[in-house]
Design a protein around this nucleic acid. Structure first.
Length: 183
DNA sequence: ACGATGATGAAC
DNA sequence: TTCATCATCGTA
């Protein structure tokens, strides 16, 4: 009873989709082998005014996928080092996406893509079996009390938008509250 | 506390 | 064409 999440599921506000992805499974098929990863940490990037979102600069070659229909992968390179995995949400024309920051046993968006072998090759591909990377609902229900909600990571430049509590973490299963800071 | 490492977007 | 910046992580 595994249901592959459809475009309809993603065709809503990123802030609605992000917490609902917790407890779902990120499924990766490579070399003919299926790998399953329980999603434990997500972040929402919502709309053209969200200064933390790449889409706040408008539609560019890189961000155009965020402006497109829901259910597509948005994968980009950050710091010249790590690939970040996002799934596009919301209606066409309204730029939004959810960053998948962690799965059970893999804490951190950069480590996640490295371990699963996810690169920009997936950018603009659909979250379906044909791409080799999709998300399934296997009936796990996460109670609200098991979700930690915080502000987003690494977006200190985003002014007022820094405060938005759009990061969602499953309490069980890791996702540590690391993060040191200078005085 | 920092540097690695390269694509991106804006300025020139 | 150049330049600063960056949705991170490992090492110090």
């Amino acid at each position: 009873m595994a249901r592959i999440l459809s475009r309809q599921f993603f065709n809503r506000s990123a802030v609605s989709v992000a917490p609902e992805l917790l407890g779902k499974f990120l499924v990766r098929k490579r070399k003919g082998v299926i790998e399953n990863y329980l999603i434990t940490e997500t972040e929402a990037y919502d709309g053209p005014n969200d200064l933390a979102s790449h889409a706040s600069k408008g539609k560019t070659k890189r961000t155009e996928v965020m402006f497109g229909p829901a259910g597509y992968w948005y994968v980009y390179l950050i710091y010249g080092v790590y690939e970040m995995l996002n799934v596009v949400t919301g209606p066409e024309g309204y730029p939004s996406a959810v960053l998948i920051r962690g799965v059970k046993g893999v804490d951190g968006p950069g480590k996640l893509t490295r371990q699963l072998g996810i690169t920009r090759v997936f950018n603009k591909k659909t979250a379906t079996k044909t791409s080799g990377l999709w998300i399934e609902d296997r009936g796990i229900v996460i109670p609200k009390t098991s979700i930690i909600q915080t502000s987003r990571i690494g977006v200190a430049y985003a002014g007022e938008w820094v405060k938005k509590p759009w990061r969602f973490v499953l309490k069980i299963g890791s996702a540590s509250e690391r993060r040191s800071h200078a005085a």
